[in-house]
Write a protein that binds this DNA or RNA. Structure first.
Length: 834
RNA sequence: GGGCGUAUAGCUCAGUUGGUUAGAGCGCAGCCUUCACACGGCUGAGGUCACAGGUUCGAGUCCUGUUACGCCCACCA
């Protein structure tokens, strides 16, 4: 191919130019005629569509793209779809604000409803289907921006496989998988103590929780002659027993007896359980229904009754007591929040003399929903649960996954160890995948929650709030003898845990499924090992008894330059990804991202953007230079020792970069490539430029050798850089090669051997060192590098002398040396300037 | 309470199974308008490898302990 090298290459505009070309040429289009062993499939994490993408997103998605581009060049046909995760609370919040609406599920669907231009002061109540429509509309707008950024960043996904978690086909798969679990008894609906957020009034799963250090206080309370410590005295009316360790001598005689609770006079048994810690508090604790998860365990194990006082809104429920004194006390608490009730009951206890001493302030960890404002409560509700496979099976699966980096695996094992109970997949929200289920209504209008009517599999997806179950008419909705729709939606993870099945075409495109599943790679961040990764493994176990993917590449977080954890919405305007790309080019952003070692956190570093930009410029200029000497003749071979040495060094670099990429260490691959490249520019190019020009001092064969070497070295280096510097390498490739560099083959050591590489690098190293001394002398003399050297004397060992002599002509020209003498002797270099 | 990770130059980090005098980039200082690149290039200064022991001919690297920071998990009365 004829070389067309621009006079003044620039970075500006490369993103637009190549973005369009790649899309038009289908460069990253998946070829689905390939078979499973030829394919590399990626279970891309669909970013949550909730606002703006910040530079942290760019980092982790670039990491995946680096691996993907390497695999593609290695000859694998890459299946790399992109998706948007639209489910969830974030988008509900934004919809409420953006359109000034609020969801009222009791309202009927209004097909004619349009959101007003400007959000009104008082939110308009709309039906769930209307609300979902608005959410969907908003996500479409946001997704446009997401796609624009991903394209500019140069993610090499195949956009024809784009999916949205709210779309009907994903909903269908989610509902189908759910009904299959129900059929096999792996999902079920049961009334049980459930983690509950009192502000959002939804139930939650264990994985949604986080600990927060909160101020609290120990209150010592008298139960007859026994004293207990509690941080939640307001739950005394919910107390059902006191518990101590079975071996605790202090309480052994009391097991089986009862005491009366203060204020309420309820007779509660004293029971034994090994979870009771003799070291904590007074050694004996009260069991309430329910104060925390330990209460649930005790209640279950010891078969205790329920005495429920906590309402779903976080306020104490009205309760009838069997005697007036208890009623009088409780009436002071009913209707109050937990916090207010605590304050009041402490006063009551003090008055009654049941409070021993004063409350002692402490700081302790309290369970919160990760998006919540108030501590969780545990209330008894009816929810859909998924039962987990046995832990030993889960451990086995976790250990069979290849984690990159490896140490992230223990996080999954830790999580499995700590699993308590089943997976609650029910959320009392609106924008999500509805349960494809209705319930019969009895003749008196009571809902028969234990008699679900499942949707027909071929009818999916369904929305039970608008669709009618088979055998009923819509007129029977909410009527005695009729039906009601399931009011809830699924946990967002219940849907996204089916991502490998969904993108692979499970139950939808058997041919595709055969080719890409189980998938090769799951890239994701470490914060969702306990959710997305874990749940995905669970779902594949249930459906197939296999892992959904082989490799898991964990990326770290991005933190602000001042080392604060980057918030989802914030971030300095200067670090806005669009700004960074506009200012420094997408390659500079990719370069920065490629510098993060797998699994480790990365800081936003504007300096790195500049360095990435400089590298991109250097690639343009050095390439232009290397291609400017003219093409080598067809029969030109690498004959000069220094050229052979360069290729020998390059061979090592190729081997290292390949090994690094094979173990998913894109940052090491980038580093060794970059290090080689700067040495190539600083030393090799300087040493051989005269010969490559074809100056008189050199033979035609020597010139041909240099030109051939430059061509080989450039081609190899561009391909090594291609995963990270996707745009600039493509630009240079187009000057002299056919097709996309991203569809070219990854360089191999065999390829370099075939081009005439030598066995050692001695000549290049020795010549570079001599040249460095010449430069230093000129610098110290404060003269330009073109200043001639009158005499250069090199004394070294026989071996080194031989090596340097091989590069004598190049050295003479690069150093502008008039008189060069190389001889054996004590190592020493003398430079005499003219 | 259990576990994982990190600690090397002012800053960000390399340092592969222990092997001469510890590396890079940024920043800093100085120099060079050099005919690929001033959106450059060259050169230089700069380190008690967190601390304390131990193994070894030899330790940034291996072992033990300590400290600090970050994170994960936990039944947190």
């Amino acid at each position: 191919m004829k070389r067309t090298v621009p006079e003044k290459p620039v970075l500006e505009g490369l993103e637009a130019k190549w973005g369009e070309r790649w899309e038009a040429d289908g460069t990253y289009r998946f070829d689905r005629t390939k078979t499973r062993d030829e394919i590399y499939s990626v279970d891309t994490p669909p970013p949550t569509v909730s606002g703006h993408l910040h530079i942290g997103h760019c980092s982790s998605y670039t990491h995946t793209d680096l691996i993907v581009r390497y695999q593609r060049m290695r000859g694998r046909e890459v299946f790399y779809p992109m998706g948007w995760d639209d489910n969830g609370l974030n988008i509900e919040r934004r919809t409420q604000i953006n359109y000034g609406v609020i969801c009222d599920p009791s309202l009927p669907y209004d097909p004619a409803f349009r959101a007003p231009e400007k959000p009104p002061k008082d939110p308009i109540a709309v039906s769930r289907p209307n609300f979902v429509e608005l959410c969907s509309q908003l996500t479409l707008e946001l997704e446009e921006e997401y796609r624009t950024l991903w394209t500019a960043l140069g993610l090499s996904c195949d956009w024809t496989y784009l999916y949205r978690t709210i779309a009907p086909d994903v909903t269908q798969i989610s509902q189908l998988a759910f009904l299959r679990l129900v059929e096999r008894g792996q999902a079920f609906r049961v009334e049980a103590p459930t983690l509950w957020d009192v502000d959002f009034q939804t139930s939650l799963a264990q994985a949604d929780l986080e600990d927060r250090e909160m101020p609290g206080a120990y209150h010592r309370i008298r139960f007859g002659d026994i004293e207990i410590d509690t941080t939640r005295p307001e739950l005394i009316p919910a107390c059902v027993a006191l518990v101590a360790h079975p071996e605790d001598e202090r309480f052994k005689p009391r097991f089986g007896t009862t005491v009366r609770s203060p204020l309420f006079g309820v007779e509660v048994p004293i029971v034994a359980h090994e979870l009771a810690d003799p070291e904590k508090g007074t050694g004996i604790a009260m069991i309430c229904t329910f104060g925390d998860q330990t209460d649930v365990i005790w209640w279950r194990d010891l078969d205790l009754p329920v005495r429920s006082i906590m309402g779903r809104d976080g306020r104490l429920l009205p309760v009838e007591w069997d005697h007036a004194e208890a009623q009088r006390c409780y009436d002071e608490l009913a209707g109050r929040s937990a916090k207010q009730a605590q304050k009041r009951i402490v006063e009551l206890l003090r008055e009654s003399g049941d409070l021993v001493g004063e409350p002692r302030e402490i700081t302790h960890a309290v369970k919160f929903w990760e998006n919540g404002k108030r501590p969780l409560e545990i209330v008894t509700t009816r929810q859909w649960f998924i039962k987990f496979p046995p832990k030993d099976v889960l451990f086995e699966r976790a250990r069979a996954l290849n984690f990159h980096p490896e140490f992230m695996q223990v996080r999954m094992e830790n999580w499995i160890e700590g699993l308590a109970g089943d997976w609650n997949i029910t959320r009392q929200r609106f924008f999500g995948v509805p349960f494809p289920v209705w319930y019969r209504m009895g003749p008196d209008g009571e809902v028969l929650w234990d008699e679900p009517i499942a949707a027909a599999l071929d009818a999916l997806p369904v929305d039970p709030s608008t669709d009618t179950p088979a055998g009923f008419t819509e007129a029977q909705r909410n009527q005695p003898g009729g039906f009601v729709g399931d009011p809830d939606v699924m946990d967002t993870w219940a849907t996204s845990s089916m991502s490998p099945e969904y993108v692979s075409g499970w139950q939808r495109d058997p041919d595709l499924f055969e080719r890409v599943f189980p998938m090769d790679l799951r890239p994701q961040a470490h914060d969702i090992i306990r959710t997305w990764l874990f749940y995905t493994v669970v779902r594949a176990e249930f459906e197939f008894g296999t892992l959904p993917f082989k490799e898991v590449a964990i990326s770290g977080f991005v933190q602000d330059p001042d080392r604060k954890k980057m918030s989802k919405s914030a971030g300095n305007a200067e670090d806005d990804p669009f700004e960074v790309i506009a200012k420094n080019g997408a390659d500079s952003l990719r370069y920065w991202a490629a510098g993060a070692r797998p699994g480790r956190d990365l800081f936003v570093d504007r300096n790195q953007f500049k360095i990435g930009r400089r590298l991109a410029m250097k690639i343009l200029n050095a390439s232009r230079f290397a291609l400017s000497f003219g093409e080598p003749d067809a029969d030109a071979t690498v004959t000069e020792a220094i050229d052979q040495a360069l290729l020998a060094s390059l061979r090592t670099t190729v081997a290292e970069a390949t090994t690094a990429f094979e173990s998913y260490d894109y940052s090491r691959a980038r580093d060794v490539t970059e290090a080689f490249f700067w040495g190539f520019c600083d030393n090799y190019l300087e040493l051989v430029k005269g010969r490559a020009y074809g100056n008189d001092a050199h033979s035609a064969a020597a010139t041909a050798s240099a030109r051939r070497t430059l061509e080989v070295a450039l081609s190899v280096q561009l391909r090594l850089f291609a995963p990270s510097m996707a745009y600039v390498t493509e630009e240079v490739w187009s000057w002299w090669q056919e097709g996309s560099i991203h569809r070219s083959s990854w360089p191999t050591t065999d390829e370099i051997d075939a081009s005439g590489a030598g066995d050692d690098v001695a000549t290049l190293d020795a010549a570079s060192e001599v040249l460095a001394v010449v430069r230093r002398t000129k610098t110290e003399a404060k003269v330009g590098m073109r200043t001639p050297v009158a005499r250069l004397e090199v004394r070294d060992t026989a071996e080194r002398v031989a090596a340097i002599r091989m590069a004598e002509a190049d050295l003479r020209e690069a150093g502008v040396v008039t008189d060069l003498e190389i001889a054996e002797g004590d190592p020493n270099i003398t430079v005499t300037l003219a």
